[in-house]
């Protein structure tokens, strides 16, 4: 449904040129984005919602989101910008669906690892400040070494499977699990110190 993406075999455009197309309101921008990033964004969405049809809809929403955001946005790293949009859209769908049933995705697995301090499926509390939490998590991630930052982002931001992370950084699965456990312990301490009830 929605946008029809024409697949071609030519080389993808550079990010700057794609962003320029968005700014010129040229619909080719979406075609070029899909040509370059469809596969990657599909994997981001699939890690979260684990359903092909839902993923395709997420991607269509992502391209629409990008179209609406540029201008005024001019992202430094288009791939990161698109990752953020796809993740948000996929998570919205995930939380709405997960109220009715358990979703067998990597996101479910990654959230369950955090059950020491992340529990319950209810709505966001009225006094909850997402910006503050985002700031605290950012501070925490910035305090980690490069490798741990990558492991955190892979597992808890885009919900990559452990095996994928292990392959990416050339560590064993057990080593990645060990690093994740250390990250979770440190994060728990950080959240406690910031007043989050665990």
């Amino acid at each position: 449904m929605g946008l029809q993406i024409k697949q071609t075999e030519r080389a993808p455009l550079e990010d700057e040129k794609i962003v320029e197309l968005y700014w010129k309101r040229d619909e080719k921008a979406i075609e070029e984005t899909a040509l370059k990033y469809n596969k990657y964004l599909f994997s981001v969405a699939y890690n979260v919602i684990c359903d092909r049809l839902d993923c395709e809809e997420c991607l269509n929403d992502t391209y629409l989101g990008a179209w609406n955001a540029m201008p005024p946005s001019r992202p430094n790293v288009l791939k990161a910008f698109l990752t953020t949009i796809t993740r948000r859209i996929a998570l919205k769908r995930y939380h709405s669906k997960s109220r009715q049933k358990m979703i067998p995705s990597e996101m479910t697995a990654s959230l369950s690892e955090l059950e020491d301090f992340v529990v319950g499926d209810g709505d966001v509390s009225e006094d909850f400040d997402a910006y503050r939490l985002g700031h605290i998590i950012s501070d925490f991630v910035n305090s980690l070494c490069t490798r741990k930052q990558f492991i955190f982002m892979s597992r808890y931001y885009v919900a990559d499977p452990i095996d994928t992370i292990a392959n990416d950084i050339g560590l064993s699965r057990s080593m990645v699990n060990k690093e994740l456990a250390a990250i979770r312990n440190a994060l728990k301490e950080k959240l406690e110190s910031e007043g989050y009830s665990i």
């Binding site: 998570l91 939380h95 992340v118 529990v119 909850f128 931001y157």
Partner: peptide
Amino acid sequence: MKKNEWSEGLN
């Protein structure tokens, strides 16, 4: 913290 809140924070 609820799962929704954690995800919102990461957003």
